[in-house]
Design a protein around this nucleic acid. Structure first.
Ligand SMILES: [Mn+2]
Ligand SMILES: [Mn+2]
Ligand SMILES: [Zn+2]
Ligand SMILES: [Zn+2]
Lengths: 143, 143
DNA sequence: CTTGCTACTTAGAACCATTCCAATTTGTTC
DNA sequence: GAACAAATTGGAATGGTTCTAAGTAGCAAG
């Protein structure tokens, strides 16, 4: 299978190599931190978590590594309004639900059938490379 | 009819009064500028256009007035990634297509039927107040 | 009218997520 | 293990937006 959606930590070295990049402790720990707790942390939150393992890492490196992971398609960057960018390890096509109460982000699975219907709404001449769908409202903690 | 989608310039004074706010030259010109050219200008672009009529307006006032218009539901604020906020006079529910070549934003009409299908994808317990749909890609100048 | 009250505007400082920069460190290749 | 390239680092810079404090303008009694 060619598209991997829940990449293992080991996939990192391979992906980096494919792009002519090196595997470094910083990149490994950052990727690991994002895979482990599958919320949608900001760069600052990643920084805080990574420092447990790498106390001397710099925030600039966190930004650099996150950018690298995004380029390598191992992580997605998602934005809500003008709030700090968040990072998402879910590579399936999915929507985001932003809970206004808690500030938390929930992934919403999207049936392929629906994605097609949405893309079909584009007039001729429009060629969409990406589609972003964001809900905002109240989310009950599901039982 | 209760919901107005292409408000006249005169609607402004009424909407402001409804919220206990005053109609000012700055608010009138800014609203007018956004209605006239229905692209999706940034605050800076609004500032540039408004200065033709009000050369001494300040950028802070532009931000203040735009915020007021958004609160009064006369204009919508839309964000693309972390780029400067853009302002949209189209109050119909619609998606946005961001043309990567030109940087321009195009409104995409959404059938109510599709909007329902999209909202239906939310699990029980999720109550969405707003939905944002953004395409990104290449758009041919339609004939 | 005038006085007082409040809303509004203004210039500039502050904010803050992110990017840039120059210097150092690290890893890889011969 | 010298040479070279890639990556990391701390700190400065950036830039859209918000804040602050002072000034201005419209309105409501008196
Ligand atoms: Mn947010
Ligand atoms: Mn943009
Ligand atoms: Zn996600
Ligand atoms: Zn629009």
């Amino acid at each position: 299978m060619s598209t991997m959606t829940t990449a293992s930590p080991d996939a990192l070295a391979q992906r980096l190599a494919d792009s002519g990049l090196r595997s470094t402790p910083q990149r490994e720990v950052i990727y690991d931190v994002i895979l482990r707790k599958r919320d949608h942390p900001t760069a600052d939150e990643v920084y805080a978590r990574v420092r447990a393992d790498l106390p001397s890492i710099s925030l600039a490196t966190v930004y650099n590594c996150l950018e690298t992971l995004v380029q390598c398609d191992l992580v997605r960057a998602v934005n809500f309004e003008r709030a700090p960018t968040r990072y998402c390890p879910n590579l399936h096509p999915h929507a985001h639900f932003h809970d206004e109460q808690s500030g938390s982000i929930h992934d919403i699975q999207l049936p392929a059938e629906l994605l097609e219907k949405i893309s079909a709404v584009l007039p001729a001449g429009y060629d969409a490379k990406s589609l972003q769908i964001t809900f905002r409202g109240k989310a009950q903690p599901a039982a």
